[in-house]
Design a protein around this nucleic acid. Structure first.
Length: 919
RNA sequence: GGGCGGAUAGCUCAAUUGGGAGAGCGCUGCCCUUACAAGGCAGAGGUCACAGGUUCGAUCCCUGUUCCGCCUACCA
């Protein structure tokens, strides 16, 4: 490719599409269990089939891709397994909304037709996120893409269900569960989000049945549930109420009386009045208390969370007032009725946590129903062990305790969902054994399976029940929680329950990259299931990255309008810029606050790289001669040494998942060392195209740039490939080139030391300019002295380089420290003393500046002196600190001395000028 | 209520184990110098949240306070 083909600015769009397609066509990302190399595998956190790429995905997948591309280049047998989950509730919601718009419903369609419809939707509109991940450059093995509802994965689900059941780790029973009255399904505990709100605490009078003039005061935040009360509890040792235990109260708004019971677990004597109502069918604590006390469960709500109170023996006027009403509407009416009857003692504001459905944010209700549960303790135990003993590492480690705490306190997992889209539970019930046909739900015809129907769990529909009845077997209408199948992801995607070569090679996977928000939902459950069914952890490392927030630290949400759309960003700034931003901001344990300006900054970085490549191509024409590293020019030796250090840093930081540090090392090196310094330094050598120095330099230039592209490739796959192809290289694509490793003979301590000396000199030059008020562009004539022979030699050797780099007019190099000539301002730093003429300066201003400097230095010197004068400091501080302080004092004194000298000269000079140039 | 994390330049964040705090972005000044104005050169800007303690020495360790996040919990 010739120079003219590289435009002045980098335009990512074509480059990205072109290369991604070529990588795919060449099968660059495909993994085979028979490939050589130590396996390295990652399973993608399966995005939701309804989802589209948001910044969280961009971060998550960028980090995975960096790891994968890096390991692939290192020669590992690398598999990144992609796919999606079927997102039961979310997907069903999407399709139901469509049906609603068409004036129909899933009930009208029936189950089979509805499922067909969902599959159609999935094929047509589902999984846009997959193409978006490709856009991001994700180097997944797309030939292996999986979906949780695939036949293979569904088989895994059935296998697991059956085996858990066989092992007594699955049971069906009537329990109080979290119910979403909008999605009309049970939710697991962790699918409920808690929100702090200020509600009201009502205090209600419950008159004693045998003496209505006396009453108990009961506090509640949900007065409407009193209709379902089956007792009132007090603490058995509470002096105030002990004598009442065994008596009854008249339940307000009903014709019922309910007992007063003693319950030391439920009742907190300190809270409220010390007496509490028990509503076993509508409150988790009360459910337990009801069990303990043998109380009836009185349901007063239906699946839509509408009140149905006939069964509660409510007063007719109460029934009339609230029957069929949702909670929110019923509550004020109950409040009014209680007030009317003089039973509402008071109501006051009260802070409380309200549970909401994590999918649709509807207030969840505790609902009594038959559900399937995974008995979790026996599964959690080994999963705790695995993290405790380090078979699974959680990174950053801070989250480990979070995980352990949750696992130790884990509750049984409700896995059944009352929806259609998902893995239908492989359980059958015999109506013949039951003695009568099961009732059918009116709305959709789903069988209502009685609690006591005997169950057959099997991978496929059994031919007959245990007693041989074959004609009336009814499958459980419920489906399994989506997370149930996600929990199997690391092995189901590799072919389990079949023992495939993939499973053998790539399980356990190497690393899982995920956000904190699904640590419990997903990570914990994968560990449990992996240990249970594979006998081995599903992954070695869990890297938990931060959540992405906006620049103000707010959670991004469509309603707030602060969403940064990664697709838009990629369009505007290029994918590489987005990826680099993600990597740079991935500091562990911290939320990522993303501002668009940052992305713009890294877009500029891509442009910088692009233009450096243009420079290269402009100067690469001509012979290239390889010289042993030790014999190369100073800039060459220096950049090789710095490149080596950068290779070391980047690799080491990646090993530790410090994407932020790795990217900042790359940024620093490429921009500030390679572009700002190295390229500038070699310009003179390249001037004469045919010179020996040009030939040698061209070799280093090409060699280092090519290496740099490989080093950067995992972070910025597109631009590095595009440029790499234009450089002298071997191989078809950078994707499978070896990742750079340190070259011992590239290290040059000596070149780096010389460079530091030159930097010190440059610093002094700037300081001179500042004190003398000379503009940065003014060409000055400097005199420099090295305080040691070596320093002197360095300056002597690099005189021309300094002239070139610092815009200096013929640097004069001396070997002594005697620069006390008139009209010169001399400064010092380290091994350098530097002087330049004050001739063109405004001397009064210079005097002012020098005085300022002296004041500053004296302040510092005093401090250093005090420290060194402290015998305890001298006695206790380590030797190197002491030396450092002594050096500092010497520097400060010498500089002060020089400035004072200058001050004297300035004084004389001012007088001199006044004499020669009378105003 | 409990647990965890954070508070450092205008903004976003670093600082590997206690020895005068760095970077990016932004800002200011000068420069279209043949790779790059999406750029170059230079520069300003910090009581390291507050109060104590340990130490020769604290941004770093300890205690407390304030503020901000997140997770978790059945106080009706």
């Amino acid at each position: 490719m010739s120079t003219s083909q590289l435009d002045k600015t980098y335009s990512p769009h074509d480059v990205e599409n072109r290369w991604y397609q070529r990588w795919i066509d060449a099968g660059m990302f495909h993994a085979s269990p028979t490939d050589p190399g130590q396996p390295y595998s990652i399973v993608i956190p399966p995005p939701n089939v309804t989802g589209s790429l948001h910044v969280g995905h961009a971060l998550n997948n960028t980090l995975q891709d960096i790891l994968i591309r890096w390991r692939r280049m290192q020669g590992r047998n690398t598999l990144w397994m992609p796919g999606m989950d079927h997102a039961g509730i979310a997907t069903q919601n999407v399709v139901e909304r469509q049906l609603q718009a068409e004036g129909t419903s899933r009930e009208a369609l029936g189950r089979d037709a509805f499922l067909k419809r969902v599959w159609q939707w999935k094929e047509k509109s589902g999984g846009t996120i997959i193409s978006q991940l490709k856009r991001l450059g994700a180097s997944c093995d797309w030939e292996r893409e999986r979906f949780t509802m695939d036949e293979g994965l569904s088989e895994a689900v059935r296998e697991v269900f059956v085996r858990l059941h066989e092992d007594g780790l699955l049971y069906r029973g009537e329990r109080l569960i979290n119910w979403c009255p909008r999605c009309l399904t049970a939710l697991s505990d962790i699918e409920v989000e808690h929100e702090e709100i200020t509600g009201k605490l009502y205090t209600i009078r419950y008159p004693l049945a045998d003496d209505p003039s006396q009453y108990l005061l009961i506090a509640t935040t949900r007065p409407e549930t009193l209709l379902g009360d089956s007792a009132v509890a007090v603490h058995p040792e509470d002096e105030r109420y002990r004598h009442l235990i065994g008596k009854r109260v008249q339940l307000p708004l009903t014709t019922r009386t309910i007992p007063i019971v003693g319950d030391s677990i439920l009742v907190d004597r300190e809270f409220g009045t010390g007496a509490v109502k028990i509503t076993p069918a509508h409150d988790f604590n009360d459910f337990e208390a009801g069990e303990r006390q043998g109380l009836p469960r009185i349901k007063i709500m239906d699946i839509h969370a509408n009140l149905h109170v006939e069964g509660a023996l409510a007063d007719p006027n109460v029934i009339q007032a609230v029957e069929g009403l949702p909670v929110a509407k019923a509550r004020p009416r109950i409040e009014q009725l209680l007030t009317d009857q003089g039973l509402l003692e008071k109501s006051e504001p009260h802070k409380m946590a309200l549970g909401k459905c994590y999918r649709c944010k509807t207030v969840v209700e505790p609902l009594l129903s038959d559900q399937w549960f995974v008995k979790i303790k026996p599964l959690a135990e080994p999963a705790i062990q695995a993290v405790e003993d380090g078979r699974v590492r959680i990174i950053p480690e801070a989250w480990k305790n979070n995980y352990l705490g949750w696992m130790r306190d884990i509750k049984d997992w409700c896995v059944s969902r009352q929806i259609w889209w998902g893995h239908q539970i492989p359980a059958w019930y015999c109506e013949t054994c039951y003695g009568s046909p099961f009732l059918r739900r009116l709305s959709d015809g789903a069988p209502l399976i009685p609690s006591d129907a005997s169950v057959i769990v099997a991978k496929t529909k059994p031919a007959a029940c245990a007693k041989g009845h074959s004609d009336a077997l009814v499958q459980d209408p419920d489906v399994l929680d989506t997370w149930f199948s996600s929990a199997l992801w690391p092995f189901s995607t590799l072919g389990w329950p079949r023992q495939t070569p993939e499973l053998k090679t790539f399980y356990p996977t190497s690393t899982l990259v995920t956000g904190l928000d699904i640590l419990f939902f997903w990570v914990a459950r994968m560990i449990m299931m992996g240990l249970k069914f594979m006998g081995e952890v599903p992954f070695r490392d869990v890297y938990i990255h931060a959540l992405v927030r906006d620049a103000e630290g707010q959670k991004m949400s469509k309603s707030k309008g602060n969403v940064i759309d990664p697709l838009h960003v990629m369009e505007q700034y290029g994918t590489d810029a987005l990826r680099f931003t993600m990597a740079a901001m991935a500091s562990p344990g911290r939320d990522v606050k993303l501002a668009e300006e940052r992305i713009e900054g890294y877009r500029n970085f891509t442009n910088k790289i692009w233009n450096a490549a243009r420079f290269l191509l402009m100067h690469l024409d001509g012979e290239r001669v390889e010289v042993p590293p030790a014999q190369r020019s100073f800039p060459d030796r220096w950049i090789l040494s710095r490149l080596n250090a950068t290779i070391h840093t980047v690799t080491q930081e990646l090993e530790q998942y410090r994407f932020d540090r790795a990217s900042s090392a790359l940024y620093q090196f490429i921009w500030h060392e390679y572009c700002d310094k190295y390229i500038e330094m070699i310009k003179p050598a390249l001037k004469d195209n045919a010179s020996e120095s040009a030939k040698a330099t061209r070799h280093t230039l090409a060699e280092t740039f090519e290496t740099m592209m490989r080093l950067l490739h995992p972070f910025m796959p597109f631009i590095t490939e595009e440029i790499w192809q234009t450089l002298p290289h071997e191989g078809a694509s950078i994707v499978r080139q070896p990742y750079p490793v340190m070259q011992p003979d590239w290290d040059s301590k000596e070149a780096e030391q010389e460079f530091s000396l030159l930097e010190e000199c440059r610093g002094l030059m700037n300081q001179e300019r500042a004190i003398l008020g000379y503009p940065a562009g003014k060409r000055l004539h400097f005199r420099v002295h090295g305080k040691t022979d070596q320093a002197y030699a360095t300056f002597k050797k690099h005189k021309e380089l300094i002239d070139h780099m610092e815009n200096v007019n013929d640097l004069w190099v001396g070997s002594t420290t005697q620069i006390s000539m008139p009209h010169l301002l001399t400064l010092t730093r380290g091994l350098v003393e530097l002087a330049t003429s004050m001739e063109d300066a405004d001397l009064e201003k210079v005097k002012e500046n020098v005085l300022k400097q002296i004041a500053l230095l004296e302040k510092e010197a005093t401090r250093t002196n005090q420290k060194l004068g402290n015998p305890e400091f001298v006695a206790k501080a380590p030797p190197d600190v002491l030396t450092e302080h002594r050096d500092r004092l010497e520097r400060e004194s010498r500089m002060t001395q020089l400035l004072q000298q200058a001050l004297g000269q300035i004084g004389l000079y001012i007088l001199e000028r006044k004499r020669t140039q009378p105003s």
